[in-house]
Amino acid sequence: MNKTRNIRSIRVTVPLVLAVLLIVAITGCALLAEEARAFGIADNFVENRDASRMALQAIEADTLPEDDEYFAGRAAAARILDSYDVYDDEAANRYINILGQTLALASTRPVIYAGYRFLILDTDEINGLATPGGHIFVTRGLLRLAESEHEVAAILAHEISHVENRHGAKAIMETKGRNLALRAEALNYRLAAVGAESGILGRGVAVLEERVQSVVNALLGDGYSVDAEKEADLGAIQILMTLGYDPRALSTVLDRLNDSEKLAGRVKEGFHKTHPKPERRIREIERRLEHYPGITQVDDAAANRRYQDALGGI
């Protein structure tokens, strides 16, 4: 019940405050705290809080702070792990972590708040999920589409590239304004050394709920945009080439996905629901790799041995 009220009060307050900030820019006058209280937006800390908010805006510019991405990602990961079982095979999970963390080092965003982590979900569904905190999940169904280390690398590199390009963070940016106000408020209570933080935690949780929901919606519901998927494919190609893997492995996996989709006649579940049609992505990848010489230096015998050892029975 409290939650509902809090959400509503934030919804009312934020547009008001934004409007106010606009007007502040063109006026300059005295303080009327009592009047403000009448509109339910002021308390003992109103002056501090809003000054802090403006200060935060000055400092944080347009990016979502690393730790905000991480905590939203953690909660989304908890939701995912609440819905799926973990594939209980240590060798397989260990392999995709070594491979995945090696690929992440070859990305343009090798460092994130708590690093990249990879886990296999025990389901036949075909899906890959990357939270903004760097928790990357791939299903057994998706890994079964791969037939080599190059192809598993392509799958993981695509998911890493979602994090690299901050697609999860972009999905939650719409709640940033509210988040900023809350951070300011939290900061202010701390600076004022007042133990009244619990008063804002409820609202904080409401914001976190909303942000996690936007991430989960993107991952398990509507998917990222077609442009985001294209960007992640291009990022994956770059990562693969940096390590010497064959970037065409990505379109090979997508080809097989396309076939499985046609075979099963399923277009509305898992990966098929959250990713654009494979054909379009394959065409784009092939266009980008038109002049790729097609020579890799990878020792395929060695790569294949460890791939078979870890994922041969997936």
Binding site: V20, L21, V24, T27, A33, E35, A51, A55
Partner: peptide, 17 residues
């Protein structure tokens, strides 16, 4: 009017980077 009143409230706040 309410927006103006609130504007007056915040106008007293300055942030200096």
């Amino acid at each position: 009017r309410s927006l103006l009143v609130i504007a007056l409230i915040f106008a007293a706040l300055m942030v200096v980077a």
